[in-house]
């Protein structure tokens, strides 16, 4: 879809002039854009959504730009540089409700794995000429810097949950975004438990639902991209994993897109840190 098609000047629907359309912005920090693109995945209802909200900032779909204020601001990406810290503080001040979307914004994302390492080591390993890489020592979730009013989890976020959130926003009802385990979704769908039937390590029991149990449905263990659920008992699950795996392997299982979220983070720490060779060639310490 061409960017102009989402909001076409001169062809606004009758609803477009409705006085109370919420002003919506979508911005990103350190992230891949995948979550904001989920909005475009709403396909069938995209135009209807566009009629009901005033999308004033959405770089992926429109060239309109806004400094705010926003009724609702969706924020993608982790906060990884000093400029981003300044910008998120500014945006918070001009946003009535600030909603973080995706694993990067809500948990720090995959880039937060570097939080366990010395920044210089990582930078030298990744970039051939690291002179121009300005970065904070850690990639952290937005909620570490400003108050967050709501979050959509996942890597990427779920179109169904995004739709549910938008509907709740327009109708004024409470969004149904369950905080329970992925297991409930597996069982409702009739997916055979990969952990019990195949011995595949699966983070489903400690991970928040919302993805529709995609990975177990395709015979893979859940790798926790929606982050920890309520009451996530990672200690017990890690202990169960440990019966047939080394501590390093167990730590690696939790070292995914939401590794920096508690209690995943503490579980990784308890098992010797995330995977990956140090720049100096040493292996991460074993528990």
């Amino acid at each position: 879809m061409e960017p102009q098609q989402l909001i076409m000047p001169g062809r606004r629907s009758p609803r477009a002039d409705a006085p109370n359309r919420p002003r919506i912005g979508i911005v990103k920090f350190a992230s891949c854009d995948g979550c904001q693109l989920t909005l475009l995945d709403l396909e069938d209802e995209l135009l209807a959504v566009a009629e009901r909200v005033d999308l004033v900032e959405f770089a992926e779909a429109t060239s309109r730009r806004s400094m705010g204020p926003f009724d609702v601001l969706f924020v993608e990406g982790s906060i990884s540089t000093a400029e981003q810290v300044e910008e998120i503080v500014r945006l918070r001040a001009v946003s009535h409700r600030l909603i973080t979307i995706g694993a990067c914004a809500t948990a720090g994302g995959i880039q937060a794995i570097r939080n366990w390492f010395e920044l210089d080591e990582v930078r030298d390993t990744v970039y051939p000429g690291p002179t121009y890489v300005e970065s904070l020592a850690q990639a952290r979730p937005v909620s570490d810097f400003v108050a967050v009013d709501g979050e959509l989890r996942g890597c990427p976020i779920s179109p169904a949950q995004l739709r549910e959130f938008l509907v709740s926003m327009v109708t004024g009802r409470r969004a149904q975004l369950p905080d329970e385990a992925v297991c409930l979704e597996c069982k409702r769908r009739g997916v055979v438990c990969v952990a019990v039937a195949d011995g595949i390590p699966c983070l489903g029991p400690v991970t928040r639902t919302g993805c529709g149990a995609i990975c177990p449905a395709y015979g893979r263990g859940c790798y926790g991209c929606f982050g920890p659920r309520e009451s996530a008992n990672t200690a017990s699950l890690a202990k169960w994993f440990s019966d047939s795996r080394s501590a390093v392997e167990v730590g690696r299982l939790f070292s995914g897109f939401t590794a920096w979220s508690e209690p995943f983070r503490a579980t990784i720490d308890a098992h010797g840190g995330p995977p990956g060779q140090r720049a100096d060639g040493s292996e991460p310490r074993d528990a």
């Binding site: 938008l166 509907v167 109708t171 329970e180 385990a181 409930l184 069982k187 409702r188 309520e230 009451s231």
Partner: peptide
């Protein structure tokens, strides 16, 4: 529901006393 809450459906789904909610 639809976007405006004009047409809505409810369904019941399996839940569990083990979930906080």
């Amino acid at each position: 529901s639809d976007l405006d809450g004009q047409e809505a459906t409810t369904e019941r789904h399996w839940d569990s006393c083990f979930s906080l909610g």
